[in-house]
């Protein structure tokens, strides 16, 4: 599903050079729920940005779903993000002027679905995340947990090969965090959705099939095992 080899991400130059990722090799199989953990500044988010095609590696190769994404043009990367990736941000990142349904509708419409197909897909996915009744609510009218569920629905609407979640529970209380983690776990189990999730919460470990532990930009054995 994902194969990364010698992934490097270097910021700055010369004496101010920062190696956020320093030769990361990784392999994630289809249907896995992988947690990316590590201390602050260890390179967790940088790795997720590379996997989400939000950034380009300084060196190394990255193959996702059979495509060497390091060789894609900007437009191809955009299309790849639209069609094969779903990204869940820490702060939900919903468009505040769009309702829950419209936030989900947007990527599906861009993908070329008809309005009818889009609406059906939106309602289905909202039912899946338990927000069918709140389809017409603006993000500001939803709780943090509900907004994050909408964000997950938006990430899933195009049936992505890979769901990436960047600390999706960081802004949520423990009750909502459990709801979100349970939901992601359910999606992973029932839909065989491959998930890579960044987290720094130790209690999240129980949800992951496997953990990639990062330290100083390198994958090291998980000290929690």
């Amino acid at each position: 599903m994902i194969r990364g080899s010698g992934l490097q991400k270097i910021y700055g130059k010369g004496s101010v050079e920062v190696r956020a990722l320093d030769g990361v090799d990784l392999e994630i199989r289809k249907g896995e729920f992988v947690g990316v953990m590590g201390a602050s500044g260890s390179g967790k988010s940088t790795l997720l940005h590379l996997l989400g095609l939000l950034d380009r590696p300084s060196a190394g190769t990255l193959v996702i779903d059979g495509v060497d994404v390091t060789k894609l043009s900007e437009r191809e990367r955009t299309l790849f993000r639209l069609n094969r990736l779903g990204y869940v941000f820490q702060d939900y990142a919903l468009v505040p002027e769009l309702t829950a349904e419209e936030n989900i509708y947007l990527p599906s419409k861009v993908r070329g679905m008809t309005v009818k197909e889009c609406t059906r897909a939106c309602r289905d996915i909202l039912s899946l995340v338990g927000l069918r009744e709140r389809y017409n609510f603006l993000p500001g009218e939803l709780s943090g947990g509900e907004q994050q569920r909408v964000a997950i629905a938006r990430a899933l609407v195009n049936n992505p090969a890979l769901l990436l979640a960047d600390e999706p529970c960081a802004n949520l209380d423990s009750r909502n965090s459990v709801l979100i983690l349970d939901l992601i776990r359910k999606l992973n189990r029932e839909l065989k959705q491959t998930v890579v999730m960044v987290s720094h919460e130790d209690w999240h470990r129980q949800y992951f099939d496997r953990i990639l532990y990062l330290q100083d930009g390198k994958i090291v054995p998980d000290p929690g095992v």
Partner: peptide, 13 residues
């Protein structure tokens, strides 16, 4: 930020 997010979820520039 919103424009960045729209691009991140695959909306063409």
């Amino acid at each position: 930020k919103q424009i960045g997010i729209l691009q991140a979820i695959g909306i063409d520039r």
